[in-house]
Amino acid sequence: MLTCNDLVVAHGDILALQGVTLKVATGETVALIGANGAGKTTLLHTISGLNRASSGDIQLEGVSISEWSTDRRVAKGISQAPEGRRIFPGLTVEENLSLASVSWRRWGESIAADLDRTFELFPRLKERRKQLGWSLSGGEQQMLAIGRALMARPKLLLLDEPSLGLAPRLAEEVYERVKLISESGLTILVVEQNTVLALSVADRAYVLETGRIVLEGPASELKHNARVREAYLGR
Rank of each mutant, 00 (worst) to 15 (best):
D6T: 11
D6W: 05
D6N: 15
L7A: 00
I14M: 09
L17N: 11
G19L: 09
T21E: 00
K23Q: 15
A25K: 13
T26C: 14
T26G: 12
G27K: 10
T29M: 02
T29F: 08
V30F: 07
A31L: 03
A35Q: 06
N36W: 00
N36T: 02
A38G: 02
A38W: 01
G39V: 00
G39S: 01
T41S: 15
L43G: 00
L44Y: 06
H45Q: 06
S48A: 06
S48N: 13
N51I: 00
R52W: 11
R52S: 09
S54A: 07
S54E: 08
S55K: 09
S55P: 05
G56W: 03
I58H: 08
L60C: 00
E61A: 15
G62E: 13
S69V: 13
D71G: 14
R72Y: 10
K76Y: 10
K76N: 14
I78H: 03
I78V: 13
G84Y: 08
R85T: 09
R85F: 04
R85I: 07
F88A: 05
V93F: 08
E94Y: 11
E94N: 14
L97P: 06
S98M: 15
L99F: 14
S101L: 13
S101Y: 12
S101T: 15
R105S: 10
R105I: 15
R106W: 06
W107F: 12
G108C: 12
G108K: 04
S110I: 11
D114I: 06
D114N: 15
D116N: 14
D116H: 15
R117H: 05
T118Y: 00
T118Q: 03
F119D: 07
G133D: 02
W134Q: 13
S135V: 08
S135Y: 01
L136R: 06
G138C: 11
G139L: 02
E140I: 02
Q141A: 05
Q142L: 13
L144A: 01
A145H: 03
A145Q: 04
G147A: 09
A152G: 07
P154V: 12
L156V: 11
L157E: 08
S163P: 01
L166C: 12
A167T: 12
A167C: 10
R169Y: 05
R169L: 15
A171R: 11
V174S: 12
R177C: 01
R177G: 01
E183T: 11
S184H: 01
G185Y: 01
G185S: 09
T187Q: 11
L189C: 10
L189P: 10
Q193V: 02
N194L: 04
L197Y: 00
S200G: 12
V201D: 09
A205Y: 06
L208Y: 07
L208T: 05
E209N: 01
G211K: 07
R212A: 14
I213P: 01
L215A: 09
E216V: 07
E216C: 12
P218D: 08
A219G: 03
E221K: 15
H224N: 10
R227S: 14
R229E: 10
Y232L: 03
G234M: 02
